[in-house]
Amino acid sequence: MEQAAKPKLIDESGRRLDGRGPTDLRPLKVEVGVLEKSDGSAYIELGKTKVFAAVYGPKEAHPKHLAVPDRAILNCRYHMTSFSTDERKTLGMTRREIELSKVIREALESVVFLEEFPRSAIDVFIEVVQADGGTRTAGLTAASLALADAGIPMRELIAAVAVGKVDGTIILDPSDIEDKHGEADMPVGIAPRSNTMVLLQLNGKMTKDELKKGLELAQIGIQNIYQAQCEVLKKKYGVSMTEV
């Protein structure tokens, strides 16, 4: 199917196609413990972007030669369902999915205390059910929740969001159409306590000032997502405590 002409992404009053202002996040829904069979799991909806994450482990590393004597290995698979995108995605892992699996894994490795589980493996699976922009950041956000849900020790949680540039304006949380027709897309993953970046990519072009503005905007979005993460975890586990 042919590429549609570029629509106007921001109108005169600064509204985006879906009615958001430039610095607005899409409606966010966060859940933990959604999959029964995994050791930890989470689900995130950001607008129409819908992502599951599940964690298995720590368990024995297989095959055995992959085991590292003094720490756990972390495996990560970011994958999209075939019907998650406008055009049907071919089955199996695409080059894009392989790359994103790696950057998400490296982001997670930077907060998990892998040294507590020598010779073990921790598997993280991210499944994008519907992709409408920001799937890797939603996936990373969900994966960090799933790790916390699995009781795996970590320095802190990770929250992530993308910022974009469309029609010359820096926007928070671009949707698929804004990403496709926009000038730049910058996914950012931040560990909020230490305020460090654990994932950072940029597709497209931004000036130095725009980059600075983009990162500031990302931090605002991430604060909101982080709050939602904390609330959902405290809600799940926040029960009156007695004789623990």
Partner: peptide, 9 residues
């Protein structure tokens, strides 16, 4: 005491 805390808190 017995407060629910999160990683990094």
């Amino acid at each position: 005491e017995k407060e629910v805390v999160l990683p990094g808190q």
